[in-house]
Design a protein around this nucleic acid. Structure first.
Length: 673
DNA sequence: CTTAGGG
DNA sequence: CCCTAAG
């Protein structure tokens, strides 16, 4: 079963701030910025940002106007869904974030309510061409309109991202995606949704950065995190709107919300799958003997953690290879590898470029050169399962492990020509049919694991199918150079029907993903799961994959590999005891003695789930050792000598107690004898 | 499951 | 921290 925890809401308009005025004081701005930093970007913010991008990128001049004198019709979830089916443009946001994921949401859709005030956009005066300056705004929650307001305002909306100093990463991928959106169906949807009569607004510069006055409105201040909205209703009396262009700050691809958006989107793939099987059983046990509930839980977590640290799957075979370890953990996190410059490294590492150039050079005897342009390879998507209570550090290591598992054995470059794999390395390009006349699209490359070098650890004895076969290894195909980094599957490869969709840049976002259906998920569990693994070729991905020139997130997936060794239990993250923990431990041991670690745990560390009684016992052991060695030999966070003294005395005391207890029977026996 | 102790 | 024997 896969449940998607998502924030799903209808979206029908912008909230217009009642008092769209610019906070004049620097303090106000600072405070706004601080708030922006404090509060994570909400999904609606993101939405607004997206919409704002649309406006500012191309539809800069869109006029919003009232719909025939009446309010703009509500846009309901259904409408949006419908639109999404046909247009793929996400006017809804998903937030899969650990922070927003609470346990109560695991079993069902989490309905998150957004206060209409959470975000606001203010219209900008459009000047002479301004339509009726009424904007109807409505935010509906699951299709239920919550609030409808009309505001006297100017017709053109402006949304920008508030810039934050320190955010530096250019986010060209995002920008690019917006370009795509703008040039694609996005605006239409936008218009549809917003019921906007789109009119070019000549007066509004199409510059991507438009400064927006911030309304002096507490509501707005609250919502302005990451988004600055501008109602150009300001003193500007020039008759025509004079959107202040601020090329450097106000709006940039690397807008403040960049990292937030990225975070959001990067975490978008966090999905939750309720456990079944073993875990349930365990928990049942836990219910039956709730005396040890916490331990059972703990153990359960640990077990699932141990049992299955990670698995990977390759998309191409994903549908056919829905292999699940019996101990699939209840929480699945899908970590999407972000494409980045590392591809270049990858490229170099696997010799792609060298082989490419080699082939080229082999042709240099002629005048004809086959032109190749490999900008990047993409790292295939990894699907990694890791418990929620794992640490970030372990997450990183797990990812690294997965990547290493794939790349460590080396990669081969496959060459595809007109959809067929060119297998004979000895052929010249010309012999292989690759000529300078060839359309560049005809030539493709794949990165595939080097089978021969695949370490045994990657092989799964029980599941030979999971081992890379020549046809399932074609993860990535890179077309050159019309869409230099567009990845696509080789036409000739036997791929699942799903895969092309995954990799198609124009693929409309199918709605199934946006409407998690628990019933469906239960009936077609694995299918649902594999769907869940599909990258969403939407704006979201572009946001999450800041690769310039990558306009589609066409990540292939790695096949699930059941590998005993890969699966080897990962060591728990090391978590040094803090002084306060030591203090608590010492106190508890002083009271309870050294032989009752379970009680110590319950007494002093009951809510520290990561501390087991074994941990406490071990810590005591090391504490005793630490107390005995010279301070110079000690490492780590220094433990106050006072505590160490207590450790020694307590240890001595309880040791003597223990010996007494042992001695007593002995003595009695001696006496009796 | 807990403890105890070696690694 | 891990592993595991022993209770």
């Amino acid at each position: 079963m896969v449940f998607h925890k998502r924030l799903d809401y209808g979206y029908s308009g912008y909230q217009v701030p009642p008092m769209p005025r610019v906070p004049s004081s620097a303090r106000g701005k600072r405070s706004a910025r601080r708030k922006a930093e404090e509060k994570p970007m909400c999904a609606f913010d993101m939405l607004a940002t997206v919409a704002g991008e649309l406006l500012s990128e191309r539809e800069n001049g869109l006029l919003l106007h009232k719909d025939g004198g009446t309010s703009v019709p509500a846009i309901t979830k259904g409408v949006i869904k419908k639109e999404n089916i046909s247009h793929e443009k996400p006017f809804k946001a998903e937030v899969f974030d650990q922070g927003s994921c609470n346990e109560s949401a695991l079993g069902s859709e989490k309905q998150v309510r957004y206060d209409p005030k959470e975000c606001s956009l203010s219209p900008r005066t459009a000047g002479k061409d301004a339509r009726e300056p009424v904007l109807s705004c409505k935010i509906s929650e699951f299709g239920t309109p919550k609030k409808i307001r009309k505001e006297e305002c100017s017709p053109a909306l402006k949304v920008t991202c508030k810039s934050e100093d320190g955010i530096k990463t250019p986010f060209q991928g995002e920008r690019r995606m917006f370009d795509n959106v703008v040039s694609g169906t996005g605006p239409e949807i936008f218009e549809d949704l917003m019921d906007v009569d789109a009119k070019p607004l000549a007066l509004v510069s199409s510059a991507s950065s438009v400064k927006v006055p911030i309304p002096r409105n507490p509501t707005f201040a609250k919502c302005s995190k990451g988004i600055t909205v501008d109602g150009d209703d300001d003193e500007n009396s020039s008759g025509c709107t004079n959107p202040r262009i601020n090329t450097s700050k106000t709006f940039r691809p690397q807008c403040p919300s960049d990292h937030r958006i990225r975070k959001l989107f990067a975490s978008k793939f966090w999905k939750v799958a309720p456990n079944d099987g073993e875990l349930s059983n365990t928990e049942m046990k836990a219910i039956y003997r709730n005396r040890k509930l916490c331990y059972t839980r703990e153990k359960t977590e640990r077990c699932s953690f141990k049992r299955r640290k990670l698995f990977e799957r390759r998309s191409i075979s994903a549908s056919n290879l829905d292999i699940y370890d019996e101990g699939v953990s209840p929480k699945l996190g899908c970590i999407k590898m972000e494409a980045s410059d590392k591809h270049a490294n990858l490229n170099a590492a696997n010799g792609a470029s060298s082989s490419t150039s080699g082939q080229k050079s082999s042709y240099e005897s002629r005048d004809y050169h086959v032109k190749l342009n490999i900008k990047s390879f993409k790292v295939p998507e990894l699907v990694i399962e890791i418990p929620e209570n794992a640490t970030v550090g372990s997450l990183k290591r797990t990812v690294m492990e997965a990547v290493t598992a794939i790349l460590g054995s080396g990669l081969c470059v496959g060459v595809f020509h007109q959809g067929k794999k060119v297998r004979d390395d000895n052929k010249t390009l010309l012999q292989a049919g690759i000529s300078h006349n060839d359309k560049v699209e005809n030539l493709g490359f794949t990165l595939e694991p080097s089978y021969t070098l695949t370490p045994p650890s990657l092989l799964c004895p029980e599941d030979p199918n999971s081992i890379i076969s020549s046809d399932t290894t074609e993860q990535l195909k890179i077309r050159i150079p019309d869409t230099p980094t567009t990845l696509e599957l080789p036409a000739a490869s036997d791929v699942t029907p799903k895969a092309p969709e995954t990799l198609s840049s124009n693929c409309p976002e199918s709605d199934h993903d946006s409407v998690p259906s628990p019933t469906d998920a239960s009936s077609v569990d694995k299918t649902a799961y594999s769907k869940a693994l599909l990258p969403v070729p939407s704006m979201n991905d572009a946001l999450a994959v800041p690769v310039p020139s990558v306009n589609v997130d066409a990540l292939a997936m790695v096949p699930l590999r059941k590998s005993r060794r890969t699966e080897q239990v990962q060591r728990r993250i090391r978590r040094p005891f803090s002084v306060s923990e030591v203090e608590a431990l010492v106190q508890a041991v002083e009271k309870l003695g050294t032989g009752r670690w379970r009680d110590v745990k319950l007494r002093a560390f009951d809510n520290a789930k990561h501390r087991t009684y074994v941990d406490l016992k071990d810590k005591w052991k090391t504490l005793v050792h630490t107390a005995r060695i010279s301070p110079q030999q000690r490492r780590g966070e220094p433990v106050p000598q006072e505590l160490l003294d207590r450790v020694l005395s307590a240890h001595a005391y309880w040791s003597s107690q223990q010996t007494k207890l042992q001695a007593k029977p002995l003595a009695e026996a001696c006496l009796l004898a």
